[in-house]
Design a binder for these strands. Structure first.
Length: 538
RNA sequence: CGCGGCGUGGAGCAGUGGUAGCUCGCCAGGCUCAUAACCUGGAGGUCGCAGGUUCAAAUCCUGCCGCCGCAACCA
């Protein structure tokens, strides 16, 4: 029985809801690693899912360039900082494109649009009375030309961790942002918006942090030539966090295109690493309050990906470059096995809200078990059976309703579970549902009905079995669209399904748009076989 | 008492009160359409340790041990 397609969607299809999501902007000091890629993939799945479900999506990514380290690194290379940033931005985007990250905009914080927006924002906060002049005192390293935190110095044994020389006590004028004045308002905001910080463990952390008392923060630096000038006192530059967070609004027109800004702000979700939760959940809303703007709707602090249980450090990655036994550079992995396998591994194996682990052995294991043997093989065997026995044309299947493959859970429920998991960013659980409740039953059904035998005694019955199996592939393709965009499309376009690929929604899985024409195989064949989706790794 | 996470059959994980589940590996069988892939069955766990709550705990509480991450410019 067909359901009202609008029933579960939007009451008024003319009103397209919008969805604005962002990822953290990255430091361009070194190339992306598997951890940064993890975040972008998780955000991309969400973006693709929302687009499928009818939202008008704006997906922002970018690089954080106004740092002392960038200026220093460029100087080391004898490059202009801007040229260095542009080159790194290009390299980052090469990786993101290889991973099929479907971002709509990529902001570099060295761009004029960001500088202008930042200056307007800080001026606004200043005018509103939340910025005041004071002095900052701390441990200053002459070599770094920067202040070191107490703990940094203490851990290194009383010296600068980089230069191994004792820092000097130094105080200098600076501007403070009155963060402490927002403590009560933040706590009220958290209380009124329990879903603001996810997952729960991050929320508890922020609550405890804010309740323990907030201190005003120094938001300026002196003596820098690279960075954004403070508009009301040009000898200062803006401290990186006060500058970086603003990318989320300068990219959508804050200070330059009010209409565009109004359309997209507030963001529906900021995807960030769990280490920067405090900045996004305390400092950032406070900054927005200070400027008279709305806070974002949701901040999701995802977990980390480790390599053999250890943190992926940038130096390790450089050291390991060229080590073929265990590649950790995303590009190296992608070059060998493709972006789809990369996406699958991290989404299936690493729970997004928590931590995950990456090892090369595990990567191969997951690749072979799930992608090659299960999904890929199911596709191959079904295509082959139809091609070999029916010449790629299942006659008189036009208008036929697919039969029911026995499963513990009905398809509609599976779809709802997958959707709920994606919306909660529990991507690994969504994928598990697809494998256990769609693909496994399909392989089992094939074995139980043995269409390769059945075709010899009852061509009609065998045809029905294959028709049902194709239905499972159609369901899998739709459900996998946000996760494996290319593979899902390949599977879907292997048949003449009614619904155009660009328009499929999760609902279509169980609504069964039905076949208008007889089911036909469209996949390119060689000897009645298709090219394997994921050739098994040895 | 800085904050947080983890400890479940050989390996990796899921499982927030009611007969312990998944993937890989292993053993035995079946099948042969398929990427030596697929299917069925089996062996293998006192769920870190010690207490407590409960008719009932991997699951809640207390303490302890071990590993890991963060600690206001490393996702």
């Amino acid at each position: 029985m067909l359901r009202d397609r609008c029933g579960k969607g939007f009451a008024n299809m003319a009103e397209t809801p919008r969805f604005y999501l962002t990822t953290a902007i990255d430091y361009p000091n070194s190339r992306p690693h598997i951890g940064t890629a993890f975040e972008k993939i998780g955000a991309d799945v969400q973006a693709r899912y929302r687009r499928m479900e009818g939202y008008e999506v704006h997906f922002l990514m970018g690089n954080d360039e106004n740092t002392i380290k960038v200026a220093r690194r460029a100087a080391e290379l004898g490059q202009d900082p801007k040229a260095y940033c542009d080159d790194m931005a290009r390299q980052f985007q090469d990786v993101w494109r290889a991973l099929e990250i479907s971002y709509d905009d990529f902001i570099q914080t060295s761009e004029p649009r960001h500088h202008e927006g930042c200056r307007k924002f800080i001026q606004k906060v200043y005018d509103n009375g939340y910025i005041y002049k004071g002095t900052y005192e701390g441990w200053y390293c002459e070599g770094c030309e920067a202040f070191k935190t107490e703990t940094e110095v203490a851990e290194a044994g009383g010296v600068c961790p980089n230069h191994r020389v004792p820092p000097v006590r130094r105080s200098e004028p600076c501007y403070y942002f009155a963060l402490s004045r927002f403590q009560d308002r933040l706590l009220k905001f958290y209380e009124a918006n329990p879903d603001f910080i996810q997952p729960e463990s991050r929320r508890n952390e922020v609550l405890a942090f804010v309740e323990s008392g907030l201190q005003d923060v120094n938001i300026t630096r002196t003596g820098q030539t690279w960075g954004i000038r403070v508009p009301f006192d040009e000898q200062f530059t803006i401290y990186v966090w006060f500058d970086a967070l603003l990318n989320y609004i300068t990219a959508i027109g804050y200070g330059s295109d009010e209409e565009r800004f109004q359309k997209w702000w507030p963001a529906d979700i900021h995807f960030i690493g769990k280490d920067i939760t405090r900045f996004h959940c305390a400092l950032w809303p406070a900054m927005l309050f200070a400027a008279g703007l709305e806070p974002p709707r949701r901040v999701f602090g995802h977990g980390f990906v480790y390599n053999r249980g250890r943190k992926v450090s940038k130096s390790d990655q450089d050291k390991k470059k060229g080590d073929v036994s265990e590649p950790t550079d995303p590009m190296e992995i992608i070059d060998r096995f493709g972006g789809e396998a990369f996406r699958y591994y991290f989404m299936r194996e690493c729970p997004f809200p928590g931590d995950g682990d990456y090892t090369w052995d595990r990567f191969k294991e997951v690749f072979n078990a799930d992608l090659a043997n299960n999904l890929g093989n199911l596709y191959s065997r079904v295509v082959r059976l139809i091609a070999q026995n029916y010449g790629g044309h299942l006659e008189q299947t036009a208008g036929r309703e697919p039969g029911v493959i026995y499963t513990d859970v009905d398809t509609e429920t599976t779809v709802e579970q997958v959707q709920a998991h994606i919306e909660a960013c529990q991507y690994n659980q969504a994928l598990e549902k697809i494998w256990r409740q769609i693909l496994d039953p399909a392989n089992q059904y094939a074995d139980r009905r043995e269409p390769w035998k059945l075709v010899k005694t009852d061509r009609e019955a065998a045809k029905g079995v294959l028709f049902d199996l194709v239905e499972q592939l159609r369901a899998a393709a739709i459900l996998l669209k946000p996760f494996l965009p290319r593979t899902a499309e390949t599977i879907y376009r292997s048949f003449n399904f009614k619904q155009p690929w660009e328009e499929v929604r999760h609902e279509d899985v169980w609504v069964h748009p039905g076949q208008v024409d007889d089911l036909r195989l469209l996949a390119p064949l060689v000897d009645n076989k298709v090219k394997p989706l994921f050739p098994r790794m040895t």
